[in-house]
Design a protein around this nucleic acid. Structure first.
Lengths: 207, 207
DNA sequence: CAACAGCTACCATAATCATGGGAGTGGCAG
DNA sequence: CTGCCACTCCCATGATTATGGTAGCTGTTG
């Protein structure tokens, strides 16, 4: 049985190249190729692909959202993300959303076919560099940036509440201290983490 | 510069085979080969390898513990795990402990060299089946609050950059749009997510 | 074509945050 | 006991963010 593949890629030349690649192989059947993923769920329902190739950066509705929807409705369909960039954050979110693998567009045709085969067989193909990023997100993170360790108990608490989205006022209320004190803690935090805003501090805090 | 490699493998014939493989290649230098990992840290300190090949199943002290120690003391040294079996669970734990990739012992010599090269270049070689296991550990944020899906591509991008700690001004620069436009996007984001500040939005965005 | 969604841009006002300063308390180590 | 650190609090100024309104441009859809 040939593997049924559908493609979502807004770049037309690339979409056609991928389509040709799939079509020319006996072991693969191209069931659809689209320039956007607005109706990915409907299309997946009627075309019944085994594997979906999805560009991560599509106009209108981006690939990550599409993956979220697809994964919820068709957990058995494997989604391979395509991207030009080696963009950590989006890779991470795509994988969280349920993507099964991740390919850079510069991947060779042979590797793409291999990846489709592999994901269909229950694997999760990704380039070594992406794999590295993925495993770096593991709990291991002992490298804690050292800066974080310098925060006192109170400062950490303040930062935690801020990360939850609370304002100074609410943090103060939560910790039963004055807003001014919260300010002071935050000033120290900024000095220690070498940042200048709440969001930066949180970004650093999150690793 | 040749890549400095050390080996930990209790099976003598295999250890010798690996040693020979490394030694025979000009681009690799074998700096040590041992039957146990009891003194892995000391040895790593004195031999200064770039890449360590570590059997996952060593007598006395197993490879995973060794990785934990190595990774803490020498975060720049890459560790490749070796295993006979496609033992998901242990490979998985090794990766958590800080290993950078893993190889089946049945891997061909060429592939082994390639993997060493790849890990040294910042990659994380692993088979698709392990990779799949790895990504399945990702937070399967399914409840995604549905609010998030309502964000348009542009809005998501803005929020992403904010989450990285950038100010409006920097986000604008990053996306090549005016600060005012960033403001507008943020206003929409707030409406859709029902929040009133950047940090709240990020908190919601992070799940 | 008209309506709508998405991206772009500007202005004004109010609220919040950033930064720098000063200051008092209690505890702990030298 | 004295300096140091963590924690607490206050003030003032300037920068940034929040909110609301307005509006042109594009592409899609009914």
């Amino acid at each position: 049985m040939a593997i049924r593949v559908s493609i979502y890629e807004d770049n037309q030349p690339l979409r056609e190249a991928l389509s040709a690649l799939i079509t020319d192989e006996d072991d693969y059947t191209l069931v659809g190729a689209f320039g956007d993923c607005l109706h990915a769920n409907d299309q997946t329902y009627s075309l019944q692909p085994d594997v979906v190739l999805m560009d991560i950066d599509l106009p209108g509705r981006d690939g990550i959202q599409a993956v979220t929807g697809l994964h919820r409705e068709f957990p058995n369909v494997d989604v391979l993300m395509l991207t030009v960039f080696d963009d950590d954050d989006r890779v991470f979110r795509a994988l969280c959303a349920g993507a099964s693998g991740y390919l850079l567009k510069q991947t060779t045709p042979d590797q793409i076919l291999e990846a489709i085969q592999s994901v269909y067989a229950g694997g999760a193909p990704m380039t070594p560099s992406i794999a590295r990023k993925v495993i770096q997100t593991f709990p291991a993170r002992i490298g804690h940036s050292a800066d974080l360790d310098q925060l006192t108990t109170r400062e950490s608490q303040v930062l935690q509440y801020l990360a939850k989205g609370l304002s100074y006022k609410l943090v103060a209320a939560e910790l039963n201290i004055s807003v001014e004190t919260v300010r002071t803690h935050i000033k120290r935090i900024y000095e220690k983490l070498h940042v200048h805003s709440v969001t930066e501090a949180i970004a650093k805090y999150r690793g």
